[in-house]
Design a binder for these strands. Structure first.
Length: 599
RNA sequence: GGUCCGGUAGCUCAGUUGGAUAGAGCAGCAGCCUUCUAAGCUGCGGGUCAGGGGUUCGAAUCCCUUCCGGAUCACCA
């Protein structure tokens, strides 16, 4: 709005005054820094270069031109070196506030497009429960989906469950051998944790076996080759592939336990999917497509019948796609799944939320599809995120340092509970309201802690810091929202019409600096959302929402709203509060975080 | 070794179409609850933006290079 208006006006000015046409976007317009007077700043260096005039002179001329020509928008200006600082008229800001005061969808694009965007995320293995790394994945996937929806896309959320393979057989074998028929019902253990327990048990027995074999004089590779346990697991996988009814029955039964466990975890995180696929259904896909590549000459079949993609010209290596026995590898499967999805949805973009250890894999996937001749491979986007590390370093299952998702959420809930009760502000809450509040705060703290960091970066998860609810945290923003809502409730009791905030905006009242500053921040929300949707990064939203909350808190402390004697000014502050509360709620919603009415 | 990603305050992180004196939070110190919620606010201290070179009116940001950290380069998934 104001940015494009300024760009166009500057272009007109350059043409009229200097007879030049600056390249679109070459003249920078930005928010004016706090220490200077003004709302927006035009950087005139590039313009002055083209016009062969001093930057100050250009800034001065442009300022005069804009103020005289658009006096209803531009109030005044000042020039510091080559920076032209423009102040908008109070009318402009009042109109702006009036326009958005009751606009529930402010900043978002209401009408979704027809072509969907696919977002695949979570994609867990069914041999163990979810951990902290999955949490980052799930939160990113969910948040990016919400952001894309708000930016006007139709989003389809996909989950591809890795439900087959040798790792699943390990759990099955261990349960068969040492489980004594234990079930989630009989043991009281959540299904995914129970299966995970047997996965660990397999590993334990396997290690013991290897140790014995080594003591009998074998070296490491020999011992691994001689392991009976591993051979049994492989045999079980073969039986599974051959459709052995017993093995299949056990597989279904144990996977079902895991799904019930996962469902509980997803529900707690408030995460849903539009479609769940299973690798047991898709793992054979892709072979035909690879063979198609062989027949059209883009892929190479060698003497031993294995099939390869040669990507050396694209700075990558050669990549195997079919083994010499004709069976698929992981890549083949992903090729098949991608094609199937493309056929099913004809999406504009396919986003895969997967850790950065698979950067190479997705680079290859994209290029192999391109090589075979699928132009839509350009629209594949790997949303790659960094690992979550602990103060002691990486999470290692063998060292028992893996942070379990369920445990962590419970811990956050408990911390929210003790912290809240210690503050003693919730006496008139019902037990159910308290439960909801603790959940909201605990999960809010966790989600915010993870999403405020740039997805690409390896992040450090410090348990002590993550349970701190002060400062740059989710609960701070939730608190600010609750505080605003409280003021608005009291205002309503006092007879203010906060449900129609538009009516509160009195065009004639003067606009103080602090309110103007808040309005500038508010006006940024659509831009921030747009950028987040382009960059697929919830972090910018998280940081923006925090800044808004912090500015509001300062404002709140410095000025009074309900006790302001100037009624028009009080009304202005109330309208502003309505809008900010809504953006806080909206912004946190994009992160998958709920916000309380009171706390 | 090849490729990719990262390095900003003691710690965790913001800061991208190159802009003005690099910002928050935590930790530390000093203040503020009789007034709309103190999960808050105010103030102080804290920086060779890993090092070096280049591009230009201007570089944390772009290019080159060195150093450090991580990922990856399987007829595994």
């Amino acid at each position: 709005m104001i940015y494009s208006f300024l760009q166009n006006s500057i272009a007109d000015f350059a043409a009229a005054s200097y007879g030049i046409e600056p390249a679109p976007g070459s003249v920078q317009v930005q928010k004016t820094r706090k220490e200077f007077d003004g709302d927006f700043t035009v950087v005139t260096f590039s313009l002055s270069k083209n016009a062969r005039k001093a930057p100050e002179a250009v800034a001065e001329e442009l300022g005069k031109w804009l103020v005289s020509r658009f006096s209803e928008t531009f109030h005044q200006f000042n020039v510091v070196k080559g920076f032209l600082n423009l102040t908008l008229t109070p009318d402009y800001w009042m109109n702006f506030l009036r326009n958005i005061a009751d606009d529930v969808a402010f900043g978002t694009t209401a009408t979704p497009g027809d072509t969907p965007v696919l977002v695949e995320f979570s994609s867990p293995n069914t041999n163990k429960p979810l951990h902290l790394g999955h949490i980052r994945n799930n939160l990113l996937g969910h948040s990016v989906s919400e952001i894309l929806k708000a930016a006007g896309h139709r989003v389809v959320k996909l989950n591809l469950v890795n439900d087959r393979g040798i790792h699943i057989c390990k759990s099955m074998l261990a349960w068969q051998r040492w489980g004594n028929g234990e079930t989630p019902g009989s043991s009281g253990i959540k299904g995914d944790h129970l299966v995970g327990k047997y996965y660990v048990l397999f590993d334990k027995h396997y290690k013991e076996e290897l140790k014995k074999l080594r003591e009998s004089g074998l070296d490491e590779p020999q011992a691994e080759a001689a392991s009976v346990l591993m051979a049994d697991a492989r045999e079980m996988l073969r039986q599974w592939e051959n459709g052995n009814p017993e093995v299949r029955a056990l597989w279904s039964r144990m996977n079902q336990w895991v799904y019930e466990g996962f469902e509980a975890t997803y529900k707690r995180m408030n995460i849903t999917f539009d479609q769940i696929d299973y690798e047991s259904d898709t793992y054979l896909l892709g072979k035909n497509i690879v063979l198609e590549g062989v027949s059209n000459g883009t892929l190479e079949q060698r003497e031993d019948d294995s099939v390869w993609a040669d990507l050396r010209s694209q700075n990558l290596d050669e990549k195997l796609l079919l083994r010499s026995d004709g069976t698929s590898v992981y890549m083949t499967q992903d090729i098949g799944t991608a094609c199937k999805r493309y056929e099913q949805f004809k999406p504009s973009t396919m986003i895969y939320v997967v850790g950065n250890e698979q950067n190479y894999h997705f680079d290859v996937l994209k290029r192999v599809l391109g090589l075979i001749g699928y132009g839509w491979s350009e629209n594949i986007h790997h949303l790659s995120y960094g690992m979550v590390e602990l103060p002691q370093g990486k999470m290692k299952s063998r060292e028992g340092t893996v942070v379990d998702a369920d445990d962590l959420m419970t811990e956050m809930y408990e911390t929210a509970r003790s912290t809240t009760l210690a503050l003693g502000k919730t006496e008139n809450f019902s037990p159910q309201e308290l439960d909801e509040l603790f959940h909201m705060l605990g999960l809010g703290a966790l989600k915010y802690f993870i999403l405020k960091v740039d997805p690409r970066k390896t992040m450090l998860f410090n348990p002590e810091e993550s349970i701190d609810f002060n400062g740059h945290t989710g609960p701070f923003i939730q608190y600010t929202h609750a505080r605003i809502r409280s003021v608005l409730r009291k205002a309503a009791e006092a007879g203010w019409n906060v449900d129609h905030a538009q009516l509160l905006v009195d065009q004639t009242v003067m606009l103080p600096d602090k309110e103007r500053q808040l309005l500038r921040l508010v006006a940024d929300f659509p831009t921030v959302l747009e950028e987040a949707a382009t960059a697929l990064s919830p972090a910018s939203i998280a940081n923006y929402v925090y800044e808004l909350a912090r500015e509001y808190n300062q404002f709140y402390h410095e000025f009074s709203i309900l006790h302001e004697p100037n009624k028009s000014l009080a009304a202005l502050r109330l309208a502003l509060s309505v809008v900010i509360a809504r953006i806080l709620q909206r912004g946190m919603g994009l992160l998958g975080i709920d916000v309380p009415e009171r706390m």
